[in-house]
């Protein structure tokens, strides 16, 4: 019964493009439609930006800038069912801009706890271990894991966001997982994460960041 009610509610919920059309039709004065979009995406964009920037204040700035940009450029967007990759692409560009302005990555955190939700007690240790690994994972791998695993974007959508071929997306995921496996093994052996600290703290090259 509850499942049917939930399914009905999902079916009734307007699509992203419907909301965008409403905003465009009313010359961006349909606040309700825009706020619905904001509520739908704020958590996902914040998590994504936080994964890239490793700093809650910067991540909030990235979310604010992303939505300001979208609101300003509403009429330029053509609703084609690609709003998810469109918003992630903007959030990605803005986050990269913040990293560039900052000059260096934020000082390497001990773990990735700040700003992220507290995990349930039975998985807390496991989550904390993985967050410590993510904190040391190079940015290109963090962003790809956030999009594919945490947000479940399709390979094609990620390729569009990053402006790279689908094959590159797959190979980056492969390498990211390989690195995480090595890190987790090292932690379990009690060897720590020291070998990966230098790589994670390097400033971003920006080589493949062109929007």
């Amino acid at each position: 019964m509850l499942l049917v009610a939930l399914e009905n509610e999902q079916a009734r919920a307007p699509s992203d493009d419907d909301l965008i059309r409403r905003c465009q039709k009313h010359e961006a004065e349909d606040r309700e439609a825009f706020l619905t979009l904001y509520e739908r995406y704020k958590g996902r964009i914040y998590s994504f930006a936080l994964t890239l920037l490793r700093n809650p204040a910067d991540a909030e700035d990235a979310v604010q800038e992303t939505f300001r940009y979208i609101f300003t450029k509403l009429n330029a967007y053509k609703p084609q069912g690609k709003f998810k990759s469109f918003i992630f692409k903007i959030a990605h560009s803005i986050s990269i801009d913040i990293i560039r302005k900052r000059g260096r990555q934020a000082p390497l955190p001990e773990s990735f706890e700040q700003g992220f939700e507290t995990a349930e007690k039975d998985r807390a240790a496991e989550v904390e271990r993985l967050r410590a690994c993510y904190a040391r994972l190079p940015r290109v791998y963090r962003e790809i894991m956030a999009m594919r695993v945490a947000d479940e974007l399709a390979y094609e959508e990620i390729a569009e966001v990053l402006g790279v071929p689908v094959g590159t997306v797959k190979s980056r995921i492969h390498h990211a997982v390989e690195l995480l496996r090595e890190m987790l093994k090292s932690v379990k052996k009690g060897a720590g994460l020291a070998p990966w600290e230098a790589a994670a703290d390097e400033p971003d090259s920006g080589e493949d960041d062109k929007p």
């Binding site: 998590s47 809650p56 909030e60 979310v63 939700e117 993985l130 993510y134 695993v149 945490a150």
Partner: peptide, 18 residues
């Protein structure tokens, strides 16, 4: 674990800023 580890919500004050 990644699905749990990379989950976050911004502070409510962000809504007012946006």
């Amino acid at each position: 674990t990644t699905q749990i580890a990379l989950r976050a919500m911004p502070a409510p004050a962000l809504d007012a800023r946006v």
